[in-house]
Amino acid sequence: MKLFGKIVIGILLYLLFMIMLFPARVAVALMPLPSGVQLGGVSGSLWHGQADVLQIGSRQLERLSWQLQPSSLFTGVVQAQWQLGSRASAVNGKGIISWSSAGIAARQLRLDAPVGFLVGNRRLPFKTVLSGDISLLLDEGHQGQPLCGGLNGKLFLNHIGLNNQFGDYPLGNMAFSLQCVKGQVQLATDDEKNAIGVAGTLLFKDQLQMEVNGRIRRTDGQSRDLQNSLGLLGKPDANGNYPLQYKGRIPGL
Rank of each mutant, 00 (worst) to 15 (best):
G36Y: 06
L33N: 13
L39Y: 05
Q83T: 13
W99V: 07
S71P: 00
R107P: 00
Q108P: 01
G44T: 07
L46W: 00
E62F: 05
G93V: 10
V77D: 01
L39M: 07
L109I: 14
R63Y: 09
A105D: 09
T75R: 09
S43N: 04
W99H: 02
W82H: 03
Q38C: 00
V37S: 04
V53Q: 13
S100D: 11
E62W: 06
W66K: 08
S71I: 00
G76Q: 07
M31T: 15
Q67S: 15
S72A: 15
S72I: 11
Q67C: 10
S98P: 01
S71R: 00
S100C: 00
G44K: 04
S98Q: 15
Q83D: 10
V37W: 08
G76V: 11
D52H: 12
I56A: 06
G93W: 10
G57T: 12
S100I: 02
R110Y: 12
T75E: 08
R87Y: 09
Q69H: 14
Q108L: 03
W99S: 03
Q38T: 12
G41C: 08
V37I: 14
G95T: 14
W47G: 07
G36N: 07
L46S: 02
G95M: 02
S71A: 02
L54V: 13
G49H: 07
P70K: 06
R59H: 10
A105H: 08
G44S: 06
Q38D: 12
S43G: 02
G41R: 06
G49M: 01
T75M: 05
V42F: 04
G85A: 06
V91N: 12
L61S: 07
W82E: 02
G40V: 07
I104C: 06
W82I: 02
I97P: 03
V53I: 11
L46A: 05
G85W: 05
G76T: 13
R63C: 02
Q50A: 00
W47C: 05
S86P: 12
L64M: 04
Q69A: 13
G49E: 04
P34Q: 05
S35W: 13
I96W: 08
F74S: 12
A51G: 06
G76R: 09
M31N: 13
A88C: 00
S58C: 00
P32L: 09
L39H: 02
F74R: 11
H48R: 14
S89E: 14
G44V: 07
S98G: 15
Q55T: 11
R110C: 01
G36F: 02
F74T: 10
R110S: 13
Q69D: 15
W66S: 08
W99K: 01
I104Y: 06
A102N: 15
V91P: 02
L84Q: 09
R107S: 05
Q55N: 06
V91Y: 04
S89L: 03
R59L: 05
Q38L: 08
R59M: 06
G44H: 03
Q60M: 10
V53A: 09
S35T: 15
G93L: 10
Q67T: 14
S98M: 08
L33G: 13
A80L: 05
Q38I: 03
Q38E: 15
L61E: 05
I97T: 15
V91G: 03
S100E: 04
I96A: 08
Q108S: 13
L73W: 14
I97E: 03
S100R: 01
A102W: 07
L64W: 04
G49L: 01
A105K: 10
P70V: 13
Q50G: 01
R107M: 00
I56D: 02
S65W: 06
W47Q: 09
M31G: 10
R87M: 09
